[in-house]
Structures are given as structure tokens and as C-alpha cells.
Amino acid sequence: MIPGTPARILLGAACLVGLIAAVAVLTGAVQVGADGPEGAPPSAAAMTGPPATAPGVVAPDPRGGVPATVLAVADPVTVDVRLEDGRALRVRALGIQPPDRCYSGQALQFARGALAGRAVTLAGDGRADRFSRALAWVTLPDGDYAVLAAEAGVVSTYAADAPPGRMPAVRSAADRARVAGRGLWGPPCVGAGGATTTPSTPSKPSTRSTAAAVSRTPS
């Protein structure tokens, strides 16, 4: 027997055991952090969960509507709100369509003055439009927003997806604004700002994010 052979054998066995243990630890760490093949790190979506702006939140409620607070106004029919449970949601107000050219700036100013920071009630059936805005009828303590905006002459009527029973009041308000020549029905627009009682296309929302609007709103 070669001198020192038992000691060398024992030392080699100890090194092999240590190597196997290290490999096992590293393998377990990869499996714990894996979110896909080869232990890739979790995606942002996996860590944060579904976005709060997922459509279908505003649905029929036994109280007659879902209370919310308007955080920001993106355009005359698109608002970011916070629901009672703390979730943020982007909403498309039903019943009206904003002008896309003449009088669009004044329409946005009216919407911000009427809605920003206000308590509202949302009534919908859980649907969303192609821009992922929850479709809802927006009511303020002093009246339906669609009626108020139509009366001011800053929007035209838009019946798509709106509750049929609510539209007569909106149309009447728009008719009064047209007869009086208010807003986009008067100079310099005289109804030329894309306003019509039966618009063919829905409004495209502003690209401002809900998250940005929430971050600028005090708790």
C-alpha cells in the first residue's frame, strides 16, 4: 500500500460530499426564484398582480351605483377614479361625445371644473370599451354629468352603450344648448367641432396613465 493513501481517500471523499452539497443548495435557490425556464427572474406582472384598471369593476350595485372619487380628468369623457375599496379605475362616461376639433380645449376645461376631485356615482354593467375604459354612467350630487355637459354645449349626445332611459334628458339638454348657441353650437364652431347627435366613432382616450394621476392626488 502506498503510504498516506487512506488519508488521501478520506480527503477526496470529503471534498466530493462538499461539492454535492453546494450543488444541491444552488439548485434549490434557482428553483425558488424561477418564473419560467432556467430560473428566470419573476416578471413585473407576476410580482404586482393584475392591474387595478382591469375592466368589469363597475357593475350593477344594489345601492343604485358605485361611489367613487374623481382623481383626474383625461378628456371630457375619460376620468380616473378611486373606488371605495381603494382601487383605481379609468372610466368612459356614457351618453356624450366630446368635440375632436373646435372647442375641444374649452370642453376639457369644463370637464375638469365639473369633475376633478368630486364625489361621483358610477352605474354600469361590467363592460369596457376597446381602450379598456370601464363604461359607466357618471352622476354628480347636482345631477348627471352627461346632462350638465350637454346643457353647457361642450359635448354632443352619444347613445352607444348608454342606458336608453337616460338619453332623452341628454338630448333635450343638447337641443337647448344648440338653440341658445352655447359652446360648440355657437361662434366660432357653430357645431363644426365634430359634434353631432349620432357620432360614428367613439372618443379615443388620453394616454395619460391612471398611475400618474393617482400619484399626484393626496390620500
Rank of each mutant, 00 (worst) to 15 (best):
C102L: 06
L89A: 14
A146H: 13
P98W: 01
R87S: 15
Q97S: 15
M167D: 11
M47K: 11
V91W: 02
T121Q: 14
L148E: 10
P168I: 02
V81D: 03
P67N: 05
R63P: 05
V73Q: 10
Q97N: 15
L83D: 04
A169Y: 00
A111H: 07
A111E: 02
P141N: 04
R112I: 07
S156I: 02
R166C: 12
V154W: 00
V79R: 05
A54Y: 09
C102T: 06
R63K: 13
L135M: 12
P76E: 07
R63F: 07
A116P: 02
A54N: 11
Y158C: 05
P51G: 00
R92L: 01
G49P: 00
Y158G: 03
A116H: 09
V77K: 06
V77R: 08
G95Q: 01
G124R: 08
L94R: 04
R101H: 12
P60E: 14
A45R: 13
G65H: 08
P67S: 14
D161V: 10
P50L: 03
G65D: 09
A111G: 08
G117N: 06
V66N: 09
A93G: 15
A150Q: 11
D142Q: 14
R63H: 13
T78R: 00
T157I: 02
F110C: 03
E151Y: 03
G49M: 07
G105T: 10
R112D: 01
V81W: 02
L94N: 02
G105F: 01
V77A: 13
Y145E: 04
R82S: 03
A44R: 08
P164S: 15
A160M: 08
R82N: 09
P51S: 14
L83V: 00
A169S: 07
